[in-house]
Amino acid sequence: MSPSSHLMTTAYLQHWTGWAPGLPDRVSWEQWLGQGAPHVAQPDSPACAQIPPLLRRRCSFLARMVLEVAFRVCEETQTPPHQVHTIYCSRHGEMQTLRTLFDDLAAASPLSPTFFGNAVHHTPTGYWSITAQNPLISRTISGGEASFAYGYLEASCLLRQYPEQPVLLVVADEILPEPFASAQHSPPFSYAVALLLCADGNEGSIPLQFGQSDPGTTRAPVYYSEPVWDFLHWLVCDQDQAQFMTSAGGWQWQRCTIPPSSSSCPTGRP
């Protein structure tokens, strides 16, 4: 039973994967999360074999990371990449691209059209829709420290509205460039994480209830600067903990052991 009176919705986490320099796949992410030791990122770039070389060269680094995990999470579940709704969330978006353009602005030099086109917050989703040939709903949001929770909230809403369509939820951010890195919140290394969420479960998928948490309730310990890493840590390492509250506060996840169709597991699904 839910310990709170807040609305909870249920979705099935079918699969997840991640990419970061030195953490190229899910196995390495699970090892890193399990060790609890800080990760020292080495310079690296995602392969992005699915992107045609000409387009790949134009992609921002953030877009490459996003497409790497997006294609992988689809491939590993045999989900056609053109048949998912996409939610992308990023606190900082294309700050690295903006930094390059700031140099040109400061020098009063004409801007590169490609760089300007890549400077919008939803850049990775443009490359994703083109490469995956995906014409469906694609939303890009940014909500500070709670960006991941709001992205998950958007995904839950889309699953409720269109239960037949899986939702690809991608969370990604880059190290902020100088001079913005020194003064501000910047992730310790650039990363992308993709979650594939469905309204109905199949073998191997994890039913998760999601909703608001009561103000004042104890938050989960914060291991990482990125709330999505804390979420994955809970998923991978805290098998006996039924509940997870994001470090940003206000939102919680619960493992749901009883099939949501059962009346003893209250859900917000229609």
């Binding site: 609305l7 917050h121 709903i137 694609s138 939303r139 809403c157």
Partner: peptide, 28 residues
Amino acid sequence: GPAYTVSTACSASAKAFASAHSLLASGF
């Protein structure tokens, strides 16, 4: 309540209506 930005360049504030609608329709 939830407070976030939709940022898809020139369609962003039209799409904000879609997200706002979702938050009402889902009961959040």
